[in-house]
């Protein structure tokens, strides 16, 4: 599934943060969304998932938009937030039950997938606990399981690596890669540039609410004139440029 953002301008109320943002997340690709704190990464994500409404521009997922087909659009999308968001009154099992109900998944199949992931994250013995009382890393794992058990075709992951132990980071990347091979598209915002460079196929570099550059590593190197540079070098160069 392909996410296409075209000429997106938007922000909070009258405060405009994004100016004419356009990029695509093609199916079967992992796209890294890179930028400084406050550059507009989270705002972009909030527009995509529909928490904010664009002032101008369109966001469509294989032809579906939030306006024309809200339920279809939402069914195709799963989201892992930067800070875990959990229901204080639900157990881990009920969080996953909620996801199954909301996305209308087949109960047995969904639980088989969830169980495999829970085992991997060593959460399978905590099904009857309240995840709201877990540590941050464990909560993050719950969010990952809940998102990746859906049949979404677009995964939006906001800064997933903070708080996860190194083993869990590997497990997450494995899960993401598996979904990618099944044809899903992934938009991932992160500051861990080395990991992004290693796993992402393409990048969107955002600076002060505008897209500074898009493309794969080779194309970025060319655009910034850094033939031997890493993503880190490119990032540093971007931040030094005048706005």
């Amino acid at each position: 599934m392909t996410l296409t953002i075209d000429g997106l301008t938007g922000g909070y109320g009258n405060l405009t943060i994004l100016k004419d943002v356009s990029f695509t997340v093609p199916s079967g690709k992992i796209v890294g969304l890179i930028g400084l704190n406050g550059a507009g990464k989270s705002t972009t994500i909030k527009h995509i998932i529909g928490l904010l409404t664009p002032q101008t521009g369109t966001i469509d997922l294989d032809g579906k938009t939030l306006k024309t087909d809200p339920t279809g659009f939402r069914a195709g999308l799963a989201y892992v937030p930067e800070t875990p968001v959990l229901y204080p009154e639900l157990t881990l099992r009920e969080h996953l039950d909620m996801t199954i109900m909301a996305y209308d998944l087949d109960k047995d199949a969904a639980w088989r997938e969830a169980d495999a992931m829970l085992k991997r994250f060593r959460l399978d013995n905590k099904l009857d606990w309240f995840p709201a009382k877990f540590s941050k890393g464990m909560q993050q794992k719950v969010m990952i399981v809940a998102a990746f058990m859906t049949h979404a075709q677009l995964f939006i992951i906001d800064e997933p690596f903070t708080g996860l132990d190194p083993l869990a980071i590997h497990d997450l990347l494995d899960i993401v890669t598996a979904k990618k091979q099944q044809g899903a598209s992934v938009l991932m915002s992160t500051h861990i540039l080395a990991t992004a460079q290693q796993y992402a196929d393409e990048f969107v570099l955002i600076k002060s609410g505008k897209v500074r550059a898009t493309g794969d590593m080779a194309s970025l190197k060319q655009q910034f004139g850094l033939q031997d540079g890493s993503l880190d070098d490119i990032y540093m160069k971007m931040t030094e440029e005048k706005a």
């Binding site: 998932i49 809200p70 339920t71 939402r74 989201y79 968001v85 959990l86 909301a102 996305y103 209308d104």
Partner: peptide, 10 residues
Amino acid sequence: IVFVHLYPVG
């Protein structure tokens, strides 16, 4: 809770 806004539920 952001998810209640994301669920594909009428």
